[in-house]
Design a protein around this nucleic acid. Sequence first.
DNA 1: GCCAACGTTGGC
DNA 2: GCCAACGTTGGC
Length: 138
Amino acid sequence: MAQNHWLVKSEPAKYSFDDLVRDGKTVWDGVRNNQAAIYLRSMKLGDQSLYYHSQEGLAVVGIAKVVREAFPDPTDASGRFVAVEFAPVRPLPRPVTLTEMKATPALAGMAMLRQFRLSVSPITPDEWRTILGLGGEG
DNA sequence: GCCAACGTTGGC
DNA sequence: GCCAACGTTGGC
């Protein structure tokens, strides 16, 4: 089965892409939203994810990949939620801002734009290519 | 700092 | 099981 693509949000003040590069990998825990948890559960080893900075920056700044598939979130006592582990792949040559994404017709259907509160969302192959193109790749 | 969106909780 | 109140997220 083909790899899936994702987008994850993080507040850079709490955990930025640079922090991920420094650490080599990180446990993506603390997700307390059912829809986001469903996406976490469907992530496969090697799936790549856009790394988006919320609150500050408001841009996709890099690419991360799944290095451990879903397991019970160690910070969740209820046992309902899961975590995964991400490792950095590479930063984008140029950040892609939320403004740019909103202004790009090909991205109008993006899950993240339509439901901005989702902290984990799927990215279609077309959206993936489009965003990497905007970021100076491809 | 404000407020819209939206998920969750709890009273009934 | 409905729905109002409340809490959280995140753009602006």
